[in-house]
Design a protein around this nucleic acid. Structure first.
Lengths: 204, 204
DNA sequence: GTCTATAGAGCGATAGAC
DNA sequence: GTCTATCGCTCTATAGAC
């Protein structure tokens, strides 16, 4: 469909994206050089510039590609017909926290935070393609549970923010800044605690 | 107390630290050059290297200095004698969220997150000097409120994590990645919502 | 301690052959 | 499209005068 072919999903292009992603995740945006990416992708630097106009554009392409994957991942959170509130909330929580703790997801988030000041447009694209879609999906589930009568959530967006906030608390935050997990806040205590709070506040 | 004097709090040293902090906050660690710092501090680059061995060491000195300030700030959250639970929680929440939204605090946190992979020791120092001290102080307040009989918090550390998590949810997260505030999540709705949840779950 | 000047390395991006 | 070779620039860090 394009003039000089340059297919969006050529093997080389994918190879460059994979290599660049690995480099960015490991060293951050600014500290990753195009030579490093070229070396990792086993192509020449000029080839990279044949596919991507600049380092910034390469960075953006990676963020966009990953966001699509995240969105797919959260779309997979479906709701079995006859789950009670506790089971449904627990499924949502462990699915979400598992995704948040994925090293790739943490790496992308670190980069977005780090480059927020200089790439606000990228942060916006990331937010809308990733977290926002996930939140919408999960708020929808809360509304469904309310409609079924197993929960009573007046404002599903606010409740969702609180739910996600509790899941992204200590356990996730330590991982985000690279600290080892603590005894006091584990995966299970975080999930169970957040679910219990939701049940007490929004249970029928 | 040192050989060649080089006092830790010389005027030039403080001046360099102030300038470097401003540059790091604005451009991030990697994108800040020593020339920029020298220019902003109106000293020569060589003078900076007379006070700090490397760019890394300069970065560390700034983080450490700021952490002391944060700890002081949270130490100021004291508890009036006859506050009820809602008033006490609201005071804690607005004080904490105000501090979190401070551009300097956000900037420092961004840098710690961004450099977490390459400066794990710094992240640890930051966490222990900053968030950990704050959490200990606030968990202590929850215990006091429980002792007074106006709250019933079985595990003050978990409750504190959940409280802080809700405060650091959407409203803070958007600021962290540089997005403008949203209608749905404002300062007031975040504080009020978190307090209401805490009251419903841990109220007497 | 503080300056000017510069070394020495690495960066993003491009030219030109094929 | 892909390569080799290189430009022009900026970076961290240092040398040497004062």
């Amino acid at each position: 469909m394009q003039k000089t072919c340059s297919p969006r999903s050529s093997a080389k292009r994918t190879c460059i994206l994979d290599a660049a992603q690995a480099c960015f995740l490991e060293h951050g945006y600014s500290s990753t050089s195009m030579d490093m990416v070229a070396s990792k992708a086993t192509v020449s630097k000029a080839t990279i510039y044949a596919h991507f106009q600049s380092k910034d554009e390469l960075f953006g392409a990676i963020i966009r590609r990953r966001c699509d994957d995240h969105a797919e991942g959260l779309g997979a959170v479906t709701l079995a017909e006859n789950l009670d509130a506790r089971a449904a909330l627990t499924a949502m929580a462990s699915h979400l926290l598992t995704m948040l703790m994925n090293p790739e997801v943490i790496g992308i988030y670190r980069m977005v935070v780090a480059e927020a000041a200089r790439h606000p447009d990228l942060a916006k694209a990331y937010y809308e393609a990733g977290p926002l879609r996930g939140k919408a999906r999960l708020a929808d589930i809360l509304d469904t549970l309310t409609a079924r009568g197993v929960l009573k959530v007046p404002d599903s967006w606010q409740a969702m923010d609180q739910f996600i906030g509790m899941l992204r608390a200590e356990y996730f935050n330590r991982a985000l800044i690279g600290l080892p997990a603590d005894d006091r806040a584990s995966f299970d205590t975080t999930v169970t605690g957040a679910v219990e709070v939701m049940l007490k506040v929004y249970g029928v």
